[in-house]
Design a protein around this nucleic acid. Sequence first.
DNA 1: CTGTTAGCGCCTTCAC
DNA 2: GTGAAGGCGCTAACAG
Lengths: 340, 340
Amino acid sequence: MSDKATIYDIAKKLNISAATVSRALNDHPKTSAKTKKRVQEIALELGYEQNRLALALKSGRSNNIGVIVPRIDINFFGSIIRGIEDELYPKGYHIIICQTHDNEEKEIQNINALLNAQVDGIITSITKNTQDVSVFERILNKNTPLIFVDRKLDLKGASSVTLDDFKGAYLATQHLIEQGCTRIVHLTVLNYQAVDIYKKRLKGYKQALEDNNISFDEALVLETKNDLSGGKRAAQNIFKLKTRPDGIFSSSDFMLLGAIKELKANAVAIPQDIAVVGFSNEPFTKFMENPISSVDQCPLKMGKLAAKVFLDQINNPELLKVEKNVILAPKLKIRDSSTR
Amino acid sequence: MSDKATIYDIAKKLNISAATVSRALNDHPKTSAKTKKRVQEIALELGYEQNRLALALKSGRSNNIGVIVPRIDINFFGSIIRGIEDELYPKGYHIIICQTHDNEEKEIQNINALLNAQVDGIITSITKNTQDVSVFERILNKNTPLIFVDRKLDLKGASSVTLDDFKGAYLATQHLIEQGCTRIVHLTVLNYQAVDIYKKRLKGYKQALEDNNISFDEALVLETKNDLSGGKRAAQNIFKLKTRPDGIFSSSDFMLLGAIKELKANAVAIPQDIAVVGFSNEPFTKFMENPISSVDQCPLKMGKLAAKVFLDQINNPELLKVEKNVILAPKLKIRDSSTR
DNA sequence: CTGTTAGCGCCTTCAC
DNA sequence: GTGAAGGCGCTAACAG
C-alpha cells in the first residue's frame, strides 16, 4: 500500500485517465479546477509521489548533475560542493558526487559512469595529471554542459570558474609591503614553472614589488616541497641568506606553517621580525595561536558561480556551445601573522 | 551521431532483435558467442552506453544512494561521505548528496526528494533538532534501507553506525591520569544533559576517574558554549577554582582551543601545568604549534561501515527489516598538549 | 476540458 | 538460440 502509488492508481480511483491525472498534477492550464482538486486529494490520500526516474527517462533530463573532485574531505572541495548544492538544490537538481583521488583512470571512469547515468551536466576539478582530453570532449559531444572549477583544461565549449591567482599574490605582497616589508621571500612549490597557478602567483608577487619600486631578487624565491617539512627546509635556507628577509609570501599555507614553526624555534618573532602571508586560507590558519594571514580562494563562491554557469547554459540552449570563463577575485584575510 | 546509441540502433545494424542485443550485452548464457562478439563490436563502434535511467525504471533500482548530512564542508561529514563513496563506488552505486544545514524542514524536503528519485537507500546524520519521526518511517515503509551515521534516531528497522562516546571519554581521561593528572576538569557543552553523546562522554570521564580511585568532583565539570569564546570563559572559571586543576578533558576541540589560548595568555604552561585532551580530532588540532591531543571519531571508517551495512541489507533481503547497530571504537590521538 | 495512443530505453517472460 | 510482446511510470501529441 504505502509501497508506491502511480498516476494509474489515482486515475482508477477517480475513473479518469492517467493523462488527466498527470495534467492535473502538473497544473496544466486546460484542466478543470474540480479535477485538479479531486486528483490532489486522492494523491495525498494515496501518498502519491512522482517517480522522477520515469520522468527522467521520458524527458531525457535526469535533474541530476555530476560533480567530480579529487577528494571530498578536503575543505576546499567540500566548500565548492556546498556552494554548488546550495545553488542547485532549490532549482530541483541533485548532486552526484564522485572522487578521483587525483587518479586519471578514476576520472575517466567517473565521467563515463555519470554520462551513463544521464546527468544534465558535469562540474569538475581535474586531476593533477590529466592528460587525456578525449573524455571531456565526449561530454561536450553529448551536449552536456561541462564546467571546470578551479583546476581547468582549455577546451572549446567547456566553461570554467577559476581564481585570479595573480591578483591573490599581488594582494598578499602589496599588503606585506604596506606593513613595511621590503625584503619579501616568496615560497613556492618544486617545479612551479610547470603549474599555471604557481607561475601566476609568482607574477603577482613580482608585479607588486615592481609597483612599489622594490627590485626583484631571484634569491628570495624559494622552491620547496608543498608540505610542513618543505616549509621547514625553506626556513633553514632563509637563515642562510645574506640579508635576513622581513616578510614571506607563501603559495601554500602548509609550507608556510612548516616555515613558521622553524622560524619560531629559532627565536624569530612573527610578525615583528618577519611578517607572513599564506595562500588558500586553510581552516587551521584561523585557529592558530597566532592566526595566519592568507589569501582566501572563496571556494563557496566558486561553487555557486559554477552552478550558475551551469544553469545559464542549461536554460539558454543557444549558450550551450558558448564557453563562459569566470575568473574570481580572491580575498586577503589579514590576521596576526602579518599585522604589525 | 554521438548523441546516443540505443540497443535498437545496434539491433538494426545487425538485423537482429533488440532483445538479443540486450542479452548479448548482459552476457546472457543462452546467447551464441558469435552474436555476443558482433554485438560488442558494433556497440563499441557506435559508442553505445547503457542508459541507466531506463534500466532503473525497469528494475525499480536506481543504483543511487542518498546521503544527507548537516553540511558537507564540515570535515567530519566530508570524511564520512568519502568513506561511503570509497566503499560504494566500486559496487556501482552513486552518491547523491543533500545538506540539511541543521534545519528539520530541509531534512524532510531532502528525504522526500530522494525518495522521489528512487534511491536504493538513505544514509543520514540527523539534524540537531529533529522531532518528526514520521518521515523516517516513510523511508522504512518503502522498504528502503535507512542507516543513521553518528547522529541517530531510535527507530525500529533503521540501522546505525555510531561512535562509542563513553569509550572515547574514558580513553582520554585514562590517558591524562597516566600522565600524572589527578585533578581533571571536564569541559562540556551547555545543557549537555539533553544530548546523548555528551552525557556518555561525562560517564566515560567519571568511570575512568573511578577506576583509578580518583573521586569525582562536580565542581570540575564546566559547562560552556561550544565555541572559542565558550572555552575562554571556561578557562576564566578555572582560575577561580580553589585548587588549580592539572588536566582538562574537553568534549569539543573548539572549546578546548578557546581555553588553551586563555590559559597561555595567563602564563599557564601546557602540558606542564595543565595537560589537555579534546574531542573530534578537528584538522586544526594537528597543525597547532603545540598540537592538541584529541579523540578521533574515525569518520572515514564510520562512512565505510555505514556503506557496508547498506550493502548487507540490500543484498540480503531477509536482513532488510533487521536493524544493525554498529558502535565504533574511537582512537585517541596523543600529541604534545598532553605529553609530559 | 478529457481520453487515447504512443514512446522514452531497457529487460524479461513466452513462444518458436 | 532468438524474436515478439509487454511493461516500468510518465507525458505529449492528437483527437474529440
